[in-house]
Simulated assay, not measured.
Amino acid sequence: MTDIINAIKSSAIKINKAIQTEDTSKAQTENSSGDVQVKLDLISDEIIENEFKKVSSIKEIVSEEKQDINPMHGNGDYLIAYDPLDGSSLIDVDLSVGSIFGIYKDEYSGPNIVAAVYVVYGPRVELVIARDVVELYRLDEEINEFIFQKELRLSEKGKLVGPGGTQKEWYSYHKKMIDEFFADGYRLRYSGGMVPDLHQILLKGGGLFAYPGAGDRPKGKLRKLFEVFPFAFVYNKAGGLAIDGKNDLLDLGIEHIHDTSPCFLGSNYEINRVLKTYSKVKK
């Protein structure tokens, strides 16, 4: 596992440099989910793939930017699903973006994830590793190394809500629930980037990130392997909860590698309120 973490760190340093110096315009292509790619999506994907090729413990990889699984080393133990540059549409307005990695054994599914890593490229570059605990590292650019900062834990109850999705497409019961959070004094924190929004909730002690199923996307927008499962693993290891409305996200399998799911991640208090709302929904 150490060699995989080191490859991710090396990738992050190179991607950070690319963000600072490379073209931020759109490419003339779409990824497998129909999202318009920016050139940095493709650059970041190539950086990560090249780093992972050097790691013999990786059996295969799958990128959010590609349609198919990419075999690596036949004797490897680990399968890695990753989003090379999550939130890349925010690049041209200079907001924080990130990379997400889910590390699996045997097969790609919620129960088979064994570790998760994500990187935030912002005013400072930070990296979070979730194994038995959740650890925060920060890049020291003078020596090009990630320095351990602290262990991260969620409070029982938070103060922030990040509500994703197109609001006019929300189901009425979901809108009512979100409105009630704000009526209770919760603060809106939502940039449209999954990595910075979930990172903020985690570092500020707690709250709720919600990307529901809705009229335009009944199965949600966020991809299980590349986004949902890795962050569910992080939040569970940090003492929080992660559900699809009714079920633990890490109990879920996949129908295909780009499968999506509604997701709610946060502190125990907020997720239990979501469970109370969604337990009444008959579908």
Rank of each mutant, 00 (worst) to 15 (best):
I48Y: 08
D41Q: 08
I100C: 04
D41F: 06
Q20D: 08
E30Q: 13
I100W: 08
G87L: 09
D77H: 14
G76Y: 04
Q37T: 11
G87W: 05
E107L: 10
S99I: 09
I47G: 00
T29C: 01
I103C: 04
D94P: 00
L42Y: 05
P84S: 06
G98L: 12
E65Q: 07
S33W: 07
I69M: 08
G34S: 11
I100Q: 02
N50H: 00
I61P: 03
L40C: 13
S44P: 09
D106W: 06
S96H: 00
I91M: 08
P71Y: 05
K14P: 05
I61E: 02
E65A: 02
D35S: 05
P111G: 15
S57C: 05
D45H: 09
E107K: 13
L85T: 12
S25I: 12
D92Y: 09
I69T: 12
T24A: 14
S32G: 05
T29S: 13
A115W: 06
A12Q: 04
G102F: 04
H73F: 03
N16D: 12
Y104R: 04
S89Q: 06
V36F: 15
V38W: 01
H73D: 09
H73C: 10
S44A: 15
E64G: 08
S56I: 08
E46I: 14
E46T: 13
D23V: 12
S99G: 03
P84C: 07
A81D: 00
L95H: 10
D41S: 01
D77T: 15
N16H: 08
G74E: 07
G102K: 05
K54I: 15
N16V: 00
T21D: 04
K53H: 00
I100H: 00
K39Q: 03
I58A: 11
K53F: 04
S89W: 01
Y108F: 14
P71S: 05
D94V: 15
K26G: 06
Q20H: 10
H73R: 01
Y78P: 04
I91T: 14
I48M: 01
D45E: 12
E30F: 15
S44M: 04
S33K: 09
K54V: 00
I61D: 03
N75Y: 01
N112D: 05
Y104W: 07
M72S: 05
Y104N: 03
Y82W: 07
E60S: 10
T29R: 14
Q28V: 13
S89I: 13
G76P: 01
N50L: 06
E22Q: 15
G110A: 06
K54H: 03
I47H: 07
I58C: 08
K105S: 02
K66D: 02
V93K: 11
G110L: 09
Y78D: 04
I19F: 03
S56W: 07
I113S: 03
N112Y: 14
K26V: 14
Q20E: 15
G98A: 15
S11C: 09
